[in-house]
Nucleic acid binder design. Structure first.
Lengths: 210, 210
DNA sequence: GAGCCTATCTATAAATT
DNA sequence: TAATTTATAGATAGGCT
């Protein structure tokens, strides 16, 4: 586009590379937003500039939401072949962690084993997979609890006043932490769906969770 | 573009929404690749179609690589305010997990505590953060080990032949697992940098790791 | 659905202020 | 250094196969 045909290779001139980056980044984010809106799909876009600065766009409430969806997607595809793989290797302790009653027991086995510094690559890979699964379950459980708390608060459930207040405080606190965690400043052209109706703080909290 | 000006809202006709999705998805991925190449930056793009199918582009060796970079970026920004937050709440057990000598000890405390089902939201949030940090450390340690193994294999280190063979096997096995894990089929238009010089299996393994 | 066509709209490279 | 302008390359909507 523009005055000359573009060669698909790194722009060597630093200035024009920077200018092109700025322009095309804006264009790409605009297009990503258009795709999301026109076709009603979920889009996430991450860009790290050469100086390590992060620019992001996402069509959902939070990028974490889409990344978690991605992770679940990958998990589901990997789960079958992973389990087959491990059964082939005759490792009977491999169970579906997502349905396990007590995830902390999953870690216990590894605590009984040697220090992490002495583990080999295969063992570390197993540890990694289990930790990842447990982490996801922890997040899921947290969501459930927050949902319950939210429901209780909104419905004015008949419970001791003191307990109810505690839940409200906890939810509000979560909201603050999450804001710090996820809502980093975006580029001006980030198209952050500012025409949506405003959400209640509670809705916001729940939607931002993952 | 095209025969009529486009309105930025969901295309109601299902057929043309699908057609537009297919066309624009290709266009967006092409532009993402152009931005990455021209400006020498890292780009990741995730799209979930309305039927839940995943399409992805990334400029790096693997999407996981960029997602891990994102996670580290978020962590670094959150770390300071998180530690301040926790100190404010007078929780002395909060230390920098990334420099801790033995990450398994981090989990031990939580094992001594109640079952995960009985934890409250705040406790679960703490558990989540620690698991996340431990997971990252596990991955880091695994990378280190792989690097060592790779170096040993490539330099033909003077060590018992048996041990060396074991390492080679382990690295090759990792490579297989990672291929299953990460290299899902992409769209034909995914621009997967096919003009790069081929990597050795070992390089491939290391680059795919995260 | 996947391609091809082409009129038209958009993005943007280079120039300019 | 950033905003604005302009000429042109590129993307794509709608039609057709």
């Amino acid at each position: 586009m523009g005055r000359g045909k573009v060669q698909l290779k790194r722009i060597e001139d630093k200035i024009s590379r920077q200018v092109t980056f700025s322009k095309r980044k804006g264009g790409l984010m605009k297009k990503a937003n258009e795709l999301a809106v026109l076709c009603d799909v979920e889009v996430a876009l991450l860009i790290f500039s050469d100086r390590g600065r992060l620019y992001e766009f996402c069509s959902a409430e939070s990028l974490e939401e889409i990344l978690e969806r991605y992770r679940i997607h990958v998990d589901e595809e990997a789960a079958v072949c992973r389990r087959a793989e491990l059964e082939k290797q005759n490792l009977p302790e491999c169970t579906d962690l997502r349905t396990s009653a007590n995830p902390l027991q999953m870690i216990q086995r590894h605590l009984d084993a040697q220090n992490i510094e002495q583990k080999n690559i295969t063992e570390l890979t197993e540890l990694e997979k289990e930790l990842d699964a447990i982490l996801r379950q922890t997040r899921y459980r947290k969501t459930q609890l927050l949902m319950e708390a939210a429901k209780a608060v909104q419905e004015g459930e008949k419970q001791p006043r003191k307990e109810k207040t505690f839940m409200e405080e906890e939810v509000a606190e979560m909201s603050e932490n999450l804001d710090n965690h996820y809502n980093r400043p975006l580029e001006p052209e980030s198209n952050s769906n500012s025409n949506d109706p405003p959400l209640s703080p509670l809705q916001e909290t729940l939607l931002h969770l993952f």
